[in-house]
């Protein structure tokens, strides 16, 4: 669970941002290493594709580098980073290139889904049986498909709330919605998600 409350990680972020602005090139590497998995996971859940998620996650950090001088530190670095990541994914989804390849590759859609990490297919002795693993993969694939079927704003609030487990305040800060709008969107997103997963 990401730590959006003031804590050790947030202090480290602020220190690294200040160090990078002072000329420490390694500070950016530390920021990337600290947040890359969280950003990648968010992008993958929002886009539903590992390749696109990696592309958007990299683009997110490039944008952070370009605009880190304008970081006002009114919010935490994580909140700012998530805002950039969500906007990058949104732009990616609306791009013509993304829509084109989405249609072209729709036939083999599951071949590159987020749940197709080959590392997760490694079966060890202590692991559950192959049947259980396949069942879990199917369940995850169904859930991801249901998320992908949601409108992007609904998807965003669902992912931030129920996968990233952020608070309402943090989600409102990231998305820019006020609290009432956020709760309304979240409620309608749950209704649609429930309908999608009704038969699963």
């Amino acid at each position: 669970m990401p730590d959006f409350e003031p804590g050790a990680e947030q202090y480290e972020d602020k220190a690294d941002v200040a160090a990078y602005l002072a000329g420490d090139r390694m500070a950016l590497d530390r920021l990337v290493v600290r947040h890359k998995d969280r950003v990648f996971n968010l992008c993958c859940r929002l886009l539903g594709d590992r390749g696109d998620a990696e592309e958007c996650a990299q683009e997110t950090f490039v944008k952070v580098l370009r605009s880190i001088g304008g970081f006002r530190r009114e919010s935490s670095f994580s909140t700012w980073l998530f805002t950039i990541a969500i906007n990058t994914c949104k732009n990616r989804r609306s791009s013509a290139e993304y829509r084109f390849w989405k249609k072209v590759l729709s036939f083999g859609r599951n071949a590159s889904s987020c749940e197709d990490d080959p590392e997760e297919f490694e079966i060890q002795d202590e692991a559950p049986s192959a049947l259980v693993l396949i069942s879990e993969k199917e369940r995850e694939s169904l859930i991801q498909s249901a998320i992908d079927s949601l409108p992007f704003d609904f998807r965003t609030v669902i992912v931030l709330r129920h996968i990233e487990e952020l608070s309402y305040d943090e989600i409102a800060r990231i998305t820019g919605y006020n609290l009432g709008t956020l709760k309304s969107k979240l409620s309608r997103a749950r209704v649609q998600l429930q309908k999608k997963l009704q038969g699963a």
Binding site: F40, R50, E120, I143, I147, E165
Partner: peptide, 16 residues
Amino acid sequence: EDLRELPRLNAPANFL
């Protein structure tokens, strides 16, 4: 709960 239990995806090793 299923959403919350979705596995955390890690970035590729050469991400940095």
